[in-house]
């Protein structure tokens, strides 16, 4: 059962770390806008082949 004495506290510590990460994310406004960031992957280097015109109307 010694393994438990390690595993369970580690689980609790990890839960604490998860909470810490979550707080950091909340404080840094990571959850305020859950729509816009989705286009981040499409922002860099536009496809070079053709100038497609889905620009805002």
């Amino acid at each position: 059962m010694n393994a438990l004495l390690i595993l369970v506290p580690i689980t609790l510590v990890l839960a604490g770390i998860a909470v810490g990460l979550f707080f950091w994310a909340v404080n840094h406004a990571q959850f305020e806008d859950l729509d816009t960031p989705k286009i981040l992957p499409l922002l860099d280097a536009a496809p070079p082949r053709h100038g497609n015109d889905d620009a805002p109307r």
């Binding site: 499409l42 922002l43 536009a46 805002p56």
Partner: peptide, 18 residues
Amino acid sequence: MAVAAQSLSSVPPSRAAT
């Protein structure tokens, strides 16, 4: 896409987009 390209060029080089 044209807009995206513009946005990149308007960012100062200090913390440049790419």
